[in-house]
Each structure stands twice: as C-alpha cells, then as structure tokens.
Amino acid sequence: MATNQPITLNENNDENVKVTITTNVPTDGTTLDLTGKTVEAYLKPTKASADNDAAAWKGSTATTGVTITDAANGKATVSIPAANITTTQGWWRVDVLSSGLRKTAVYGTVTVVDL
C-alpha cells in the first residue's frame, strides 16, 4: 500500500529522508521486509514528469542514493544530493522492485525552501 508522505527539503543542501515501507498484507500498515529487494527513489519537477526527465533525480539501492537501514522492518534512507535539490522540484516517489514487479511504496509533494 502506497503511503502519501509530503516532504520539505532545503535548497542546495544534501538531504536524508527516512522512510518506512509498508504493505497491506496481511493487514494495512504491515512493514514490508526489504530483504533481497531493490528500492528506487525519484525527485521530479511534477508527478507527470517522466522518471528519465533530465530534471529528475534517481537513486537506487542497486547504485547510489538509497540505503536499506533495517530490511526486516522496511526501513530505508533516501540521500538526495544538494545539486538536485532546487526550487523546481515538486514531487517524489519511492518504489520497491521484486521479482520483476514494481510497486510504489511512498510518494508525495515536495516543498523546497528557497535558501
């Protein structure tokens, strides 16, 4: 089950956003065990912006930018570099990939404080 989590970031600052990923199996709010799963995060101008838009940032446990901090309890940290935090960014999303399937876990609006 995807969770709406609006965030506020400071422009031109390295920011860490902690997330707890949940599922609706067996009941809503059950933490999702992230063991063996890939987690990807996107910071984009709008929710309609393509994931591969030149203005979008992508982080992943497979590369850099996302760290699973407690797999059994569904906890991860998204580390967004300062260069990608600008006032033009307005949307973010975290997906979990497992067995070839993609599920959005966390999403929401982004407010960037103009510093």
Rank of each mutant, 00 (worst) to 15 (best):
D28P: 15
K58C: 02
Y42V: 01
L34G: 12
T31V: 14
A62Y: 14
A48Q: 11
T67Y: 00
A50T: 11
V39C: 05
T27Y: 14
T27V: 13
K58V: 11
T46W: 04
T61F: 09
T63C: 07
A71P: 00
P45K: 11
G36D: 08
A71Q: 01
V66D: 02
K37W: 01
T67P: 06
T35M: 02
S60P: 09
L43D: 07
T31Q: 14
T27F: 14
T30S: 13
A56K: 04
K58W: 10
G59H: 12
K47N: 14
Y42F: 13
D53K: 13
K75A: 01
T67Q: 04
A71H: 01
A62N: 14
A71R: 00
A48P: 05
L32S: 10
D33P: 11
A54Y: 04
S60T: 08
D33R: 03
T67M: 02
S60W: 13
I68W: 06
Y42S: 02
T31P: 15
N73T: 05
A56H: 06
D28Q: 11
D70A: 07
A41E: 03
N73Q: 06
A56T: 15
A48K: 14
L43K: 08
G65E: 06
D28T: 15
T63D: 11
P45R: 12
T30M: 13
P45I: 04
V66N: 02
T46F: 09
A41R: 01
K44L: 14
N52C: 14
G29H: 07
I68S: 06
T31G: 00
D33M: 06
V25D: 12
V39I: 13
T38S: 14
D28K: 09
S49L: 05
